[in-house]
Design a protein around this nucleic acid. Structure first.
Length: 318
DNA sequence: TTCCAGGGGTAGA
DNA sequence: TCTACCCATGGA
């Protein structure tokens, strides 16, 4: 991953703009990656359809809150992303590195998928499309944000998930100084500082309320280090065990978080999975979870990606 | 008003 | 390991 920086000073505003760039591993399909997951629609993310830009408010480790505007300036084979950072005051070299690292993580800029692409080529047909830079599933800069959002997908329709995440951001996220209506995803410390009662009233997460609040408290107190789960040396089974030890995380959420951590061994069995597999492979009948999972068994450690883009292609064809 | 969603925890077998 | 039951919330 490489980056270069230049700075442009705004003239009429207290907000300055810094231009950064990021070069992901090729092949890389920027737009398909951004639209690969509903995460694009969850606050503080927003997708600008006309400019094909992903916008997001980010709180840096210094406490500075900035607005990111991310677009593609390259091609699939020679990819490059432009990152406009709107911020008050200065943006230090450390801040710039933090921003490019966050964007790199969101887009999985350094994720190596050649083994998955080789399997897609063996299959041929519609799977060949994936080898043109698809296969990256959008995620968040922190494991905490992904964990909270995953818990907010449990037993609820997508509109409900969007509403819950938006309430969390509006109630506990820090404001962007250039537009107080825009906020960053809240830190564990901010959520943990609220009483359970105040948290429940503000977020309205239903039965997920104690799961998310307790998770924030455990991280804020130092008892739990979710970022440590990004360690590639951790065996997947150990990682899954640690995820399942989090209250509110069961088999579905653990498989989703494994995928977000770059481990594709497990399928997230939920209503969408059962409906899709039943419709496409079992003449509309719901198979057992074992039968459904067996469909993707020979994808080995790439099962989740195979399923995810199987449903993604069906969606695009319909 | 009723149903149920992109499930999970718990108890009991 | 499996099943039954309950769990808040909000959209259809």
């Amino acid at each position: 991953m490489t980056h270069r920086t230049e700075e442009v000073q705004g003239k009429a505003s207290m907000i300055n703009t810094t231009h950064l760039s990021l070069t992901p591993l090729a092949p890389f399909d920027y737009q398909s990656t951004a639209q690969s997951h509903g995460w694009m629609e969850l606050a503080p993310n927003a997708w600008d359809k006309e400019r094909h830009a992903l916008q997001r408010v980010e709180r840096l480790s210094t406490g500075q809150v900035v607005l990111l505007d991310i677009t593609s300036t390259g091609s699939v084979e020679q990819p490059e992303m432009a990152i406009e950072v709107h911020h008050a005051g200065e943006l230090s070299p450390k801040d710039r590195r933090e921003v490019t690292a966050a964007v790199g993580r969101i887009f999985r800029a350094d994720e190596e998928l050649s083994e998955f692409y080789a399997l897609c080529r063996e299959r041929g047909g519609p799977w060949l499309k994936l080898t043109a830079g698809l296969g990256r599933v959008l995620r968040s800069p922190t494991v905490f944000e992904d964990a909270v959002k995953t818990i907010c997908t449990i037993n609820i329709q997508w509109g409900g998930t969007k509403g819950m995440v938006k309430r969390l951001v509006n109630a506990f996220g820090e404001q962007y100084p250039g537009d107080p209506a825009l906020r960053a995803f809240p830190t564990p410390e901010t959520m943990a500082a609220a009483t359970p009662e105040a948290f429940a009233v503000a977020a309205r997460l239903g039965f997920r309320t104690p799961y998310v609040h307790t998770l924030a408290q455990r991280i804020a107190s130092g008892e739990l280090d979710l970022e440590a789960l990004r360690n590639p040396a951790l065996p997947t089974l150990e990682l899954k065990k640690r995820l399942l030890s989090i209250k509110g995380v069961g088999n579905y959420a653990a498989a989703t978080l494994l995928m977000l951590l770059g481990r594709y061994d497990e399928l997230a069995v939920d209503t969408a999975f059962r409906q899709f597999v039943g419709h496409k492979y079992f003449q509309g009948q719901y198979p057992s979870d074992k039968e459904a999972q067996a469909l993707y068994a020979d994808w080995g450690r790439w099962k989740y990606l195979a399923y995810w883009f199987d449903i993604w292609q069906s969606f695009r064809e319909s």
